[in-house]
Amino acid sequence: MKYTEEHEWLRVEDDLVVVGITTHAAEQLGDVVFIELPDVGTMVSKDDEVVVIESVKAASDILAPIDGEIVEVNEALVDEPGKVNDDPEGDAWFFKLKIEDLSEMDDLMDEAAYKKFVG
């Protein structure tokens, strides 16, 4: 598992990068009530706003952690946005990215570094 400073986690599965938000981020957001996912096939660049996530408190964006193509989205979250609070680092992944070179993930934080980052 790799982590970004935007509190996303990235996990490689079948050569695709699965992206979600961390437990810490989900706790900070509070109860999630709305999620808007990108279209499959969208080409994204790092830091593009790809997911809109609204909690009872506020709206936030989830940014693309890395360049790539959105090849799958987790449609189940649209009907049950609360899954993000229940299982943020498991069932509640947002999208899967196809990226050119998996080594691009090497620059991201590992678990120990992320833990230190959130203090």
Binding site: G30, D31, V33, V56, K57, N85
Partner: peptide, 10 residues
């Protein structure tokens, strides 16, 4: 206090 441990929804 904006919320306690239950969270806003609960």
């Amino acid at each position: 206090p904006v919320q306690y441990r239950m969270g806003v929804m609960k």
